[in-house]
Amino acid sequence: MNTLAGAWEWLTDGANWSGEGGIGNRLTQHLYLTGVCLALSCLIALPVALVLGHIGKGGALAVNISNIGRAVPTFAVLVLLLLSPIGGYGSWPTIIALVLFAVPPLLTNAYVGMRGVDRDVVRAARGMGMTGRQLLTGVEIPLALPLILTGVRIAAVQLVATATIAALAGGGGLGRIITAGFNLASTSQVVAGALLVAVFALLVEGLFEAGQRLAPSWARDRG
């Protein structure tokens, strides 16, 4: 309990909130990193998954890519990128590593969602004379939306959590509080940093949960 008290003391100390290495700055960096990576990975994964799901091809690829993604440690990818020529470009190694990490769940969920759309509904829409584009935007995407959003939510929460790894490679974000605590051998700071990240991750999860509850019933995940 001493550690928790120490962590609380560290968190409530105003001096730890300001400045370059302060909680405020680290939180902003973390939010920025997560946001950029989520946006980029959505831009990459969703169009591919939607098109693949629409034409019904590449299913094995979409499902297997998520298994492969799990086997490759993000930390290893990050360090490999750092030591490669890309390493010289600021936070790009971190962003690329995190995007590579977030794409598989997005891709798999969106694809599964698209394929899960009732075939009878698709045939009915075709029979009504809908073009491919109308079918995609008017029928398939709305019906697949719950699973697509589940993928986005999983990716977002995992990104918040995994963005801490950037700190191991000298990047910014909340992970830096933890690694700095390790270097100072200050358990209370380590625990304080860990609590911050955990709360942040749970907050994002909660936000998505709330968003899903407020959404119209057809956009909710029935699973």
């Binding site: 959590a161 995994t162 992970g175 990240v197 991750a201």
Partner: peptide, 17 residues
Amino acid sequence: TVLYTIPSLAMFSLLLP
């Protein structure tokens, strides 16, 4: 599920004490 959302770096450090 809550355990799963705790980042690995944070998890290892939370278990430190």
